[in-house]
């Protein structure tokens, strides 16, 4: 195998994988605190991208555009939780999940109306240059993606391990009912986590836009691929979810490079489907009462 080709596929795979990993993390956090797997998770990546790109195009400074997109993600995440999930907390899972699907559709639609059908682009944060690693040529923006993702992950882990709210999130992950009985304010925590997941997804969306463009209908793919990561960790382990997200990015890149770029999505989804089918029935998450066989 040609090493430079391998690296040329591996590193871009890791770049998109960072986005999937952040989406996966958002899935895990929201699911553990609220009991709802948020179908709209991938849409926040898309929104971050289109909002950031258009703010920049309107003449805003880069830093302001990034901050604006991230804040929009946080705000929309919080709004989604307050407006559509808080009123139906006691409703069956089926209702809550389907509502998040409806919200995803609304977010896509809003993006289509507000930002149009054409993909939006954004210049690299420090120019559109490239650099070379082991014979592979990468856009400099990749460094921004890796750096921003690493910083975000570090922040999330610091939050989880060293703050009261973070400890409460972890307690919910172990046993939501017990955490509530111990005085965890689940309402406030749910709002916080949705805002956090929205913000981190949106930030990921902005930093990756100079490489992949931002498009109103990209949310499903982000959601579905991030979902793979989340499910590998059984919606429990943030670390496995991250690794899974990165792995999907790499798999996708290899599939495009070594098999066929046309079929790369089919391969990734095929792997997802095969994995789900093989492990069918053993997933324990959400409020679904699960039988063990």
């Amino acid at each position: 195998m040609d090493l430079s080709v391998f690296v040329q596929l591996l590193l871009p795979g890791l770049t998109t994988g960072c986005v999937y990993a952040l989406v996966a993390l958002g899935f895990v956090l929201c699911a553990n605190v609220s009991g709802v797997v948020n179908f709209a998770q991938g849409e926040y990546v898309m929104l971050g991208g289109v909002i950031g790109a258009s703010l920049l195009a309107q003449g805003m400074p880069l830093a302001a555009a990034i901050a604006g997109a991230t804040a929009a993600g946080a705000l929309l995440g919080a709004l989604q939780e307050r407006l559509t999930l808080a009123p139906v907390r006691a409703a069956p899972d089926f209702i809550q999940i389907t509502i998040t699907l409806g919200v995803a559709v609304v977010l896509r639609g809003v993006a289509l109306i507000a930002f149009g059908k054409d993909p939006l682009s954004m210049p690299g944060f420090s120019g559109d240059g490239v650099f070379e690693v082991a014979g592979a040529v990468l856009p400099v923006q990749s460094l921004w993606v890796w750096g921003a993702s690493a910083a975000l992950l570090a922040a999330v882990f610091l939050f989880l391990m060293h703050s009261d709210a973070g400890r409460a999130v972890r307690a919910c992950a172990i046993n939501r009912q017990a955490a509530r009985l111990m005085g965890v304010d689940a309402e406030r925590l749910t709002l916080l986590v949705f805002a956090l997941a929205g913000a981190s997804a949106a930030l990921a969306g902005v930093v990756v836009t100079p490489i992949v463009l931002a498009n109103w209908d990209a949310g499903i793919a982000y959601g579905l691929k991030g979902f793979v990561g989340a499910i590998l960790g059984n919606f429990r382990s943030p670390v496995v979810a991250l690794a899974g997200g990165l792995g999907i990015g790499v798999l996708e890149s290899f599939a495009a490079g070594y098999v066929s770029s046309g079929y790369k999505d089919a391969i990734v989804y095929g792997v997802l489907l095969a994995y789900l089918l093989a492990r069918g029935g053993v997933f324990v998450f959400g409020r679904a009462a699960l039988l063990s066989r």
């Binding site: 797997v37 179908f39 899972d93 089926f94 999940i97 699907l101 499903i220 579905l224 979902f227 499910i231 999505d265 089919a266 989804y269 095929g270 997802l272 489907l273 789900l276 089918l277 093989a278 069918g280 029935g281 997933f283 959400g286 679904a288 699960l290």
Partner: peptide, 21 residues
């Protein structure tokens, strides 16, 4: 058989993946 063992969100994702394939 296997797909309907999956519930809720997982079933939604699996069937969506099938469609996209």
């Amino acid at each position: 058989g296997p797909i309907l063992k999956l519930r809720g969100f997982v079933l939604a994702m699996a069937s969506l993946a099938l469609h996209l394939i």
